[in-house]
Write a protein that binds this DNA or RNA. Sequence first.
RNA 1: GGCCCGUUCGUCUAGGGGUUAGGACGUUAGAUUUUCAUUCUAGAAACAGGGGUUCGAUUCCCCUACGGGCUACCA
Length: 505
Amino acid sequence: MKDQVRVRFAPSPTGGLHIGGVRTILFNYLFAKQNKGKFILRIEDTDQTRFVEGAEDYIFSCLEWCGIKADESPRDGGEYGPYRQSERKPIYRKYAEQLVKSGHAYYAFDTSEELESKRQVTENFRYDHHSRHTLRNSLTIPHEAAESLVKEGAPHVIRIKMPKDENITFTDMIRGDISFHSSEVDDKVLLKADGMPTYHLAVVVDDYLMKITHAFRGEEWLPSAPVHLLLWKYLGWGNEMPQWAHMPLILKPNGNGKLSKRDGEKLGFPVYPINWYDNKRDVKSNGFKDVGFLPEGFINMLAMLGWNDGTDQELFSLEDLIEKFSLDRIHKAGAKFDYDKAKWYNAEWIKRRKTDDLLMPVKDILNYHGIHNIDDGYLAKVIDMVKERCQLLSEFHQQAFFFFEAPEKYDTNSVKPKWTPEKETFFKAFADELQKGKINESAKMESSFKSLASEKNIKVGEVMLPFRIMLVGDKFGPQVFDIAATLGAEETINRINKALEVFVD
RNA sequence: GGCCCGUUCGUCUAGGGGUUAGGACGUUAGAUUUUCAUUCUAGAAACAGGGGUUCGAUUCCCCUACGGGCUACCA
């Protein structure tokens, strides 16, 4: 029996979580659930200078909206905590020192400023096997001197000592065999001057301590994989290294680069799951939720960006995805984000959702636009009539407001040029009939409307559009008699009279 | 620049030594809807280029081109 599958997503709380990250979360989660394993959320807050207040809360809110729950996290606890790296700070130094002792790492005393000026002078300067012997570190100064400098508290970092000539290979679950040459990789910092680990050390130590079996991350991490591979080996944990999977990136629609957090503002679509407010720049970004996405549509869309099940099926619920997901069907190349297709997924999920489950979100939209005191039964009827016309939940207002309030404006251009006194007479007569007969049913309204028209020698087609505009204000919406019937005879009559005043003058 | 990863319709993708290269979004045309949307039908639309290997390559190999990523005491 194999060990239990354990995967992790490890965001740094430096801002909003964008959809690339959410997709990595999703694939982690699907893989974990499919294998009856655990999904762990670990906060990688090792960069204290970039820490953003509220970012961690935001990550949890996104997860919640998506319907994804972590099995272990700073909030949910677990046996392998703490789950915030800042709270694990004392752990890392020990391993870094162990590497120094075994000769795989060394102390370096160069300051950031010194290195920065090196980079100015020497193009492509790197701290590596070529340059390390010319710099201030425990390889160039006597060992005892270096040790005592460290003891005295001199500012220093610990860097990995990359071997000079070694092939480093591994098998990626998505990409297959990948290899690097050690001479091309620089001596990455493992432990920073403030005592915090860098990502490179932290990810290895924590993945080991948290017994991670499969590690998913974006393709942008591929170049630093050799460092991680070596660290697993040097720390003596080679046999327990997780299997790696480097996911394809989500690219901008125009194909120039990976989708970034600022693209949402420029390109006119969301990049965050839910609203994110960046208080450093004072910019508020709408999330998918806020522009009217259902979590089902959002998740479905994300999953299909780089994965498919090999059939023509495109619509998957989270449960379907858990069942069908497989790593070997992940596409290797990056995917350009297509907002039109994203909306199409959402439209499909709006149509699929039970009316009862649409009540709350639609009510929120209507409330937001000042429509209150909505009756559930009435709203349900309305939703059934308009839901296939909405790609986004937010469109429910535009598509249904006239069921709740009379139109303020009329598309008079479609009515007035062809308006005649006969039509006025017709509508007055029709209103009378509704009044007398208390006609409230769609079919009855329609037959009454039609027979009255032929009685008055008016073509039905001539008065249908004006009638619609009386009720809706414009040329859209469901079957006009269905609207009238839903509104009821009384309200229909009111709207006829109100509109007549505008049409006739 | 160096290293790594990638490349099938505009986009997301299926396929895989012999196929009319399939689907979806978008798009075009038509039908339905006395509005609009939905729905339905039809159409246009792709294997980056060059070399191999092979009886035969879009599929396998190499090169080139192009795209992307990384190149911090950031993740």
